[in-house]
Structures are given as C-alpha cells and as structure tokens.
C-alpha cells in the first residue's frame, strides 16, 4: 500500500507540476523531430508521428484522465450515497422500489448507455464525466444502502431514537459518520473504474476530443504507430496501468482497514 501510494503521488505530482518545465508543450509540433527516438535532445521519451513530445503528451493526458475520473467518481459518490441512504433509511416498499431500479440499471450494458449519450448529446469532457458518474453510482448505492440497512437496526440507533433524536440528527450524527469510511474506500475504488471507462471511450474516439488529450487517446494513437515507434504505445499504456493498479491497491487497503 505504501509503494502504491508513493507511486501514485509521484504520477499525480508529475502530471500537475512537470509540464511547464518541459521545453515542448503537449500540442506543440517539433517539425525537426518527427518520430524521434527516446533520449533525443529536448525529447526525453521521443516524439510521436507528427513530432509532438511524448513525455509532455503523456503528462497532459494523465492530467485530463485523472481530472475526469475524480470528478466522475465524486458525481457517483453523491448520487450513490443519496440514493442508497434514502433506500436503506426508509426500508420496506420504498427500499424495494429504489433497489429494483438499481438492479435494472445494473443489467444494462452501461458502456453502451454512455456511448449512446455521447452520440446523442455530442462529445464534451463535461458530458464524459457526467455520463460516467451517472452509471458508476450503482455500486456505491448498493454498498451505502447495505450499510445503512445494517445500521438502521443497530441498538445504538434505537437508543438514539429513544433519546429523542430527530431523524435528521440520527442521519447526520450516527449514520453518515459510520458509513463515511466505507463510502470513501469505495470512492477510491470507483476512480480506477472511471479511468478505465474514460480511456476506453477516448480510445474509440468517443471521449475527450483533440486538441485535448487523454491516456486513452494516446494509447490509440500509439497503437496506430507502434510498429515504427513502440514507445508511443508503451509509455501511456504503462502510466495508465500503473495508475489503475495503484488506485486499486489503495482502495482495497483502505477498505480492508475500514472493515475492521
């Protein structure tokens, strides 16, 4: 977990702070160095098929991917917690109806739903993360609902009711603090999910649009060009995989710690 945390921090810090220090911007074209190999002057990792610096592009793509993922995961957290907590708190018919909706949505090919949304409303970064967040909240809703349902019948909640606490006080004083840790752990696990979805969409050309770039677009471009410049595939692919592995490990570790 420590290694994962350190590597993740390194990736995030590099993506945020390093780009201004590089000689070339992520969209700037160096006409003198098309498909330059690694360690060329000014291009540590070489350039792509139109002469753009691979390191700068990878960092920029990482930044966009992480930003979209974090925003989408937060959307998922808000919707999921609200939905799950409401269902768990009221229980009975309301719970059943609300969870039916979640079950039904679970059964959908959610990637296709996002694609349909992209097709219908056009492609924009805002829509990418709204759309992804709107389908990624399902797991969160299930987890939160399960937690609330279990808490609802715990004696300390009953004792709180006997102590005259109104529903609002029970929710904010007992329920939310007790589900916060689990919700945060699942938030950590939602981020890598979203990273994958965003990259997937971008890879297909349905996500982030040029001139903005993301890890998915870079992998796609790299795949087109890999026989000549394999680094253009390997570098963004490695950063993507490393980021997801680290996020998963952190989330799992956090969840295991919370479960105790």
């Amino acid at each position: 977990m420590k290694v994962a945390g350190a590597l993740l921090v390194a990736i995030v810090v590099a993506a945020l702070l390093l780009p201004p220090l590089l000689p070339w911007g992520y969209a700037a074209i160096d006409w003198n160095a098309v498909r330059a190999p690694a360690f060329s002057p000014g291009h540590l990792l070489g350039t792509d098929s139109v002469g753009r610096d691979l390191l700068a592009r990878t960092l920029a793509g990482t930044r966009v991917t992480l930003a979209v993922a974090t925003a989408a995961a937060l959307v998922a957290l808000v919707i999921g917690t609200a939905w799950g907590a409401t269902a768990g708190w009221f229980g009975g018919r309301i719970d059943e109806a609300m969870m039916r909706v979640v079950d039904a949505l679970y059964a959908l090919p959610f990637m296709f739903v996002v694609i349909v949304l992209m097709v219908v409303f056009g492609r924009s970064v805002l829509l990418v993360f709204l759309g992804i967040g709107a389908v990624e909240w399902l797991t969160m809703a299930r987890v939160v609902r399960g937690q609330v349902l279990a808490l609802r019948n715990r004696p300390f909640i009953l004792a709180s009711e006997a102590a005259g606490a109104p529903a609002r006080a029970i929710l904010t004083g007992h329920i939310l603090p007790n589900i916060a840790s689990v919700a945060i752990a699942y938030l950590m696990l939602t981020v890598p999910q979203v990273v994958m979805v965003e990259s997937f969409l971008s890879f297909l050309g349905l996500g982030v649009q040029e001139p903005l770039t993301s890890l998915g677009i870079l992998v796609h471009d790299g795949a087109d060009d890999m026989d000549i410049a394999p680094l253009t595939l390997i570098v963004p692919g490695f950063v993507l995989v490393a980021t997801v592995v680290c996020l998963n490990r952190l989330g799992e570790g956090l969840r295991a710690r919370m479960a105790r």
Binding site: P155, F156, L158, A159, S160, A162, G173, H174, P177, N178
Partner: peptide
C-alpha cells in the same frame, strides 16, 4: 431502553 448487545449499543 438498555439492549442486549453492549458492543452494538454504542456508536
């Protein structure tokens, strides 16, 4: 009230 399971009785 006072309940059965003391561990679950307190937040």
């Amino acid at each position: 009230p006072v309940f059965q399971d003391p561990a679950a009785s307190l937040d």
